[in-house]
Design a binder for these strands. Structure first.
Lengths: 330, 330
DNA sequence: GTGAAAGCGCTAACAA
DNA sequence: TTGTTAGCGCTTTCAC
């Protein structure tokens, strides 16, 4: 195994100098720096993670706490995961997987044994039960999601309220006066996930503000449910010319059902989705995307800032981005 | 921070004794063991991961290399992930996430800096490009999947060939003489994923062996593709009374299309699926499940065996399990 | 059955 | 700008 001593000998410097070249914790003259770098390259040196963690009391590992609840959109989770890993690597950190079932005890263990420097916790609910543990540990942590009380925490989320409003604004500006809202499954609303309620709130108040008629309904991830909901919406809102869909799992079915009801999309009913870009792209639907990449990256950046002793804001809301797509579908 | 010295002092023993209680690397009298355990509990001691890694040259971390290819079934991936994490925890190990995009260099880095003791690599293809790196590193590793050449490796997989055959056997024993096969998307077959081909091979040779008429077709994850494929199958195999489906993404559509073609399921066409149990359960379909939990667990067990210096077999195939479900759907 | 002590490879004072 | 050195907290040999 190649150690820092080998590199130091090879470069003709002291071990500490090699360390300083690596960490940047003290200026090193350009000449030595280059020589050390060359030796590192040549010998294929990689600092021993454990030794480094022991000496610096920094593991350079982020714990990523996954959601394992029913109803989460797996593709979105995966996009978060990859974006967190990518962002972490940019800061020379690795990512340890913490499954939800490890629970509070797991978080405590990881913190105490110094396996992770901090955590990014995904899919945090309004009244998440893991929050007390996080506060108790007092470790750096960033939450993806939006708990009811953000005091003393650091949370990152899409501004879902703005997203809901954005859809209405866009449609109202196109002249629509009667807009439906097809949301997530009722379980998601019951569960206090926050993002669903906030989108709906943004939608509703924007509709109110603009004097647009509106009705909102949840839809279960089954064809028959979507069929029923679309039917109900058309009945409740007979002059409905636009529909905002915040339920990527059933988006395809919504389009089918509208057609089955004799409505052309977008000619009779304009559909705006709140969903990943790729899906909207495929269906050629105007949409507000869930910027998983940006959220994950921001979360990691905030965590790194905390690790460097900086204060971070309790809540960061990323602005929604509406992409207009006008092509015909299929 | 609570260290081993604190525990030793509190229990009135030497630090090494505490270590031996923890690792079991040397017998400790029952009395001391209990006392030490109590002190550990009382003080809330967790051995420092980095220190342990440095002293023992074992990080107690498994690298889990994720697939990021198009066409992977995310729910299945997640089940693997959770089962690997759960199994790892049972061996007092944690799991580090390695995304595919980190590539060979990433694997090399993690091995050299001793961040991980070994790897579990998911979704390994027949001619996977990561295999050379793995061999080069000579580190403990277990592959989930089935590369063309398993020599010198340790692979775990479902016996897909047996799975394909099992479906035919089951249906033939029920008297079916003409059986269709609706497989994964053509991209999956083109990509040499192995599992898809082997299932098909098992299906085909079992049909041949039993003198059953059969036709196999791939299906893309779009409704129109499924519609076309089901139509073609019914045309090519006019007396088809059974269908084996190896494509969980479109399974629901297959049932719809069969009904749209005027075939009752299972009265006119019996459908057997190769898919996760939960899905088959929901659709009340006889099925062979992908035992993600068992595969993940076995992979971890084999990895742990390797870490303990044991030899592990190059290929472990888990037997398929066919669950008969006879209820009506919906 | 237990203790003392020498590292593991690195970082970060302290010293020059 | 660089070198020397004392730990970081644990494991493990050696000694009893």
């Amino acid at each position: 195994m190649v150690t820092i001593v080998d590199v130091a000998r090879h470069a003709g410097v002291a071990p500490s100098t090699v360390s300083y070249v690596l960490t940047g914790n003290r200026p090193v003259s350009a000449g030595t720096r280059v020589r050390v770098r060359e030796s590192i390259q040549l010998l294929g040196y990689h600092p021993h993670a454990g030794a480094r963690a022991l000496a610096s009391s920094r593991s350079n590992v982020i714990g990523l706490v996954l959601p394992l609840r029913e109803g989460v959109q797996l593709p979105v989770v995966m996009r978060f995961v990859t974006s967190v890993v990518t962002a972490a690597r940019r800061h020379d950190m690795d990512v340890l997987l913490v499954t939800a079932d490890q629970g509070a005890a797991g978080l405590r263990r990881l913190a105490h044994c110094a396996r992770v420097d901090g955590c990014v916790m995904m899919d945090v609910g309004l009244d998440d039960e893991r929050l007390p543990v996080l506060r108790e540990l007092g470790r750096p942590a960033v939450l993806l999601g939006h708990p009811a009380a953000v005091k003393g925490l650091t949370c990152v989320d899409l501004d879902f309220e703005a997203a809901g409003a954005r859809c209405v604004d866009h449609l109202a500006e196109l002249g629509h006066r009667s807009i439906g809202f097809l949301g997530a499954s009722s379980a998601v609303y019951a569960r206090n996930t926050g993002f669903a309620q906030r989108t709906l709130a943004g939608f509703s108040s924007a509709a109110m503000r603009r004097g647009v008629a509106s009705t909102a309904m949840p839809a279960e991830p089954r064809y028959d449910s979507v069929q029923a909901v679309v039917g109900t919406l058309l009945r409740e809102l007979p002059r409905m010319t636009a529909l905002v869909v915040h339920n990527e799992a059933v988006l395809g079915w919504v389009l089918e059902c509208l057609r089955a009801e004799g409505r052309r999309v977008p000619d009779d009913v304009a559909v705006v989705a709140i969903c990943p870009d790729e899906l909207a792209e495929r269906l050629r639907l105007t949409s507000v995307q869930l910027p998983a990449e940006a959220l994950g990256r921001r979360a990691v950046e905030l965590l790194v800032a905390q690790l460097n002793g900086q204060q971070t804001p309790p809540l960061t809301l990323l602005e929604p981005n509406l992409s207009v797509r006008t092509g015909p579908h299929r």
